[in-house]
């Protein structure tokens, strides 16, 4: 399943967004439902997320990794999560682009789901992902504004 999402950070320069989005403490605060977020190696984190997709709710434990970093333009975010309702395997390309209004972040992800998440969640997943990503970027937006 493909998930595309775009968010515009108004009046915030690209470098600031990059810095914010790489800050592990900010990430922990901004990730919805994040219960723990521990750096296990450079750019690799072990996390625990509470996710609620329609009728499927659960705690997911997983690995988050950032690879192919090309500061400040792009990076790849790899997320592998596992919980009662099934497993999530996401490979997201994040692009940051300077535009007149500020910075546009484009996220393009290939997401694989298993278990109940797949059979029940798939239909609502793209909608829910948009909500979750929207919340996440809004938080990043708030955090970044403090740095401007």
């Amino acid at each position: 399943m493909n998930i595309e999402h775009t968010y515009t950070f108004k009046g915030i320069p690209r470098e600031v967004i990059w810095r914010t989005i790489q800050d592990k403490e900010v990430l922990q605060r901004a990730l919805p439902g994040c219960k723990s977020f521990v750096e296990v190696a450079e750019d690799a984190f072990a996390s625990e997320l509470g996710i609620s997709i329609g009728p499927v709710k659960g705690i997911f434990t997983g690995d988050v990794r950032q690879v192919d970093k090309n500061e400040p333009e792009s990076y790849r975010l790899l997320v592998k999560g596992k919980g009662k309702p099934g497993e999530i395997d996401a490979d997201a390309n994040m692009f940051l682009e300077e535009i007149e209004e500020g910075t546009r972040l484009q996220c393009s992800a290939e997401v694989k789901l298993t278990g109940v998440l797949a059979s029940v969640g798939q239909r609502v997943m793209s909608g829910v992902a948009k909500v979750v990503l929207g919340q996440f970027f809004k938080e990043i937006d708030k955090e970044a504004k403090q740095l401007v």
Partner: peptide, 14 residues
């Protein structure tokens, strides 16, 4: 089925 072999119609909701 999705191309990954997941049944996308696995409940009476779908």
């Amino acid at each position: 089925y999705s191309k990954d072999g997941q049944n996308l119609t696995g409940t009476f909701m779908d």
